[in-house]
Computed example of a mutant assay.
Amino acid sequence: MDVVTFGESMVLFSSDQNLPLQYIHQFNKQMAGAESNVAIGLAKLGHRVGWFSKLGDDPFGHYVLHQIRGYGIDTSRCRHTNDAPTGIYFKEQRTHGKTQVYYYRHHSAASRMHPDELDEAYLAGFKFLHVTGITAALSPDCLAFTRKAMASARKQGLKIVFDPNVRWKLWDSEEAAKQVLLELAGYADYILPGLDEGELLTGCKQPEEIASALLKPGVAGVVVKLGSEGAYYQSEQQGGYVAPFPAEEIDPVGAGDAFAAGFISGLLHGDELEQAVRKASAMGAIAVSVNGDVEGLPNEQELLHMIHHHDDEDYQNVKR
């Protein structure tokens, strides 16, 4: 197996109307969550993926599980509970490309993941572990669960990709977030902060400075996501900027998850860091150009076609 990840996935309700939620009467039901978005992105690219969580033993929990399993993802380590519900959230799109999200996840089933429930032997069957800072912020038990999973994966030789993925509504303070996220980054082989997250963790404002500050012994690479301006990557051997792929921004939610999926896919294919970041950037561009977190994500052939088509256009522009 290639990649395993874990975390909370919720039922998403959104509308085709660009109105405040209080004026919306009909909603579309979907499923989304940062870690499952990454898992689905990787599965659509042809990788063998596992995802696990704790879900409510309710209709929404079974819906989430069936949706993720439908992509061919192994969900055999998921648990259901009658003690708490599956989380939900609502997406409000007020104007073109402007999105507000409202979460109803407090005391959800996923927040009750306990470190004693971790199947460490299961982790050993994978090459990569993907982790976000979201899970650690759900509850003290989830933080302990995340620590144990990362420590176990590191001990068993998995490569760990860590995305801080800050959700401010889940943290008590910036200092609390910084302390925990830096601790978790210490387990990682690859760290994928956004520019604001990098500033939070390091106090630095420039991508090069952020990457240098996070590139501690044991870290193979840092990639600072710059949104519409591309990304900056750094390892001990190399560093540089990757230009963004052109995209019309329709829905920015899920772009970072698509970026992570493209990046990990590149690493699995043995790509150099720069090429892996280019795949990540292309995936992010595809994600923002469609509504929904995962529905528009490409397969491997479609992703490579986009990259090659972009390269051909650049070549023709240089010739002109």
Score class of each variant (00 low, 15 high):
S36W: 01
A110Y: 05
T75Q: 02
D116H: 14
D74S: 11
V101H: 10
V38K: 04
S111D: 12
G70V: 09
P115L: 09
D58W: 01
N82H: 08
F90K: 13
A43N: 06
M113T: 10
A109R: 03
A39W: 03
R79D: 06
A110R: 07
T81I: 05
I73M: 06
D116R: 15
Y122S: 14
G125F: 08
A121R: 15
H114Y: 12
N37L: 03
G97I: 08
G56V: 00
K91E: 12
C78W: 07
G97P: 10
V38H: 03
G125E: 15
D57I: 00
G50V: 00
E117K: 11
G125R: 14
T86I: 05
T75C: 14
V64C: 10
S108K: 12
H96N: 14
E120R: 14
L118F: 11
K44Q: 11
D58N: 04
S36H: 01
G70K: 11
R48P: 00
A124I: 05
G50H: 02
S111R: 12
T95E: 11
P85Q: 09
L118W: 11
H66N: 13
Y102P: 02
S36C: 01
A43F: 04
S53E: 06
V38P: 03
Y102G: 02
D116L: 13
W51R: 02
P85K: 09
S53R: 05
S76G: 06
S53V: 04
G41C: 00
S36R: 01
N82Q: 10
E117S: 15
G87L: 08
K54D: 00
D57F: 00
F126P: 13
L55P: 07
Y103I: 07
Y71F: 15
S53C: 07
A121E: 15
R69P: 02
R79C: 07
Q93K: 14
A124T: 11
E117A: 15
L45W: 01
E92W: 08
H107R: 15
R69A: 15
A124C: 09
R105Y: 12
G56E: 02
K91D: 07
H114Q: 14
D119M: 11
W51F: 12
H107C: 10
G70F: 09
R112T: 15
A84E: 04
L42T: 05
G61S: 06
F126R: 13
L123H: 13
K44F: 04
E92A: 08
M113C: 13
N37E: 05
F60L: 10
G50F: 00
R112Q: 15
S53P: 06
T86V: 07
Y102N: 07
W51T: 01
V38I: 04
